[in-house]
């Protein structure tokens, strides 16, 4: 038992030394790596919280798959009733941009969405479409700079090369799990704080650390959205037919 304790202590110390040498770029790459998987299926509950505390809930399921470095994702709205069966498809193209469509059951039509709409609110929540895809940037998307570091966390500033949605983010990253514990999103001017994301609860699924509950707050209004992962599956085989216009329009493989 004593030997095991010493070994563990040494291992932790050694790993701390290794991580201490990581650059901001490497840390953010690790953050992205931690969050990524070849495929995932998520069952999510979005709770929209008014500043006065009134809550509204939306349940969605998101399937995503990465093949040859290109990510496809499909989001299906399960509730409330007036948006049930709304489906959202995003296909990443080789130029790095995504083609996006939304199917609106009330209109029985699918409509193409421009990537400039990525900054728009996702289902009236405080998350944008872009936030739903990723809340951090990798080393190819932004210039990263270490602002602070202590025994348990890194604080890293990221300034994206293409300021499509935000001008700057400041992420607090857990040193052990590499999960973002807190992310502040700034306007394109880089100084106005727009939103703050806080990881409320973490979990480990199949050995993979995940942020199980997150809250995004819009600073100007005080409106917040809590996102809870109710069920998760990672690296599961997903039929490619989910990520097609056929599934978007019919809801069937």
């Amino acid at each position: 038992m004593k030997r095991l304790f010493i070994t563990l202590t040494l291992l932790i110390l050694a790993s701390s030394l290794v991580w201490a040498d990581l650059s901001a770029n490497q840390i953010m790459a690790k953050v992205m790596e931690t969050q990524s998987s070849s495929s995932s299926a998520l069952d999510l509950m979005l709770t929209l919280i008014d500043p006065n505390g009134q809550m509204r809930e939306r349940r969605i399921q998101t399937l995503s798959q990465t093949k040859d470095g290109l990510t496809s994702s499909l989001t299906i709205f399960l509730s409330p009733e007036n948006v049930r069966n709304t489906r959202f498809l995003s296909l990443e193209k080789e130029d790095g941009k995504s083609e996006m469509w939304i199917y609106l059951p009330a209109l029985k039509r699918s409509r193409r969405i421009g990537s400039s709409e990525e900054g728009g609110s996702f289902m009236g929540s405080d998350f944008s479409y872009a936030d739903m895809a990723s809340i951090t940037y990798d080393e190819k998307q932004a210039v990263h700079q270490m602002l602070e570091e202590d025994a348990t966390r890194y604080v890293i500033q990221s300034i994206p090369y293409e300021k499509q949605t935000y001008g700057k983010t400041v992420s607090v990253v857990d040193k052990v799990t590499f999960l973002p514990l807190r992310v502040q999103f700034y306007d394109k001017d880089g100084t106005t704080l727009l939103k703050t994301l806080v990881t409320d609860q973490t979990d480990v699924v199949d050995g993979k650390p995940i942020a199980k509950a997150l809250t995004m707050t819009t600073e100007s209004s005080g409106h917040a959205t809590r996102l809870v992962m109710m069920q998760t599956r990672f690296d599961v085989p997903l039929n490619s037919a989910y990520f097609t216009l056929k599934f978007l329009e019919t809801g069937r493989l």
């Binding site: 299926a41 069952d43 399921q61 299906i76 399960l78 049930r84 069966n85 069920q231 599956r233 809801g251």
Partner: peptide
């Protein structure tokens, strides 16, 4: 007569 349901991956 109808057992009714909607999409649920899980």
């Amino acid at each position: 007569l109808l057992p009714l349901y909607s999409f649920d991956f899980f």
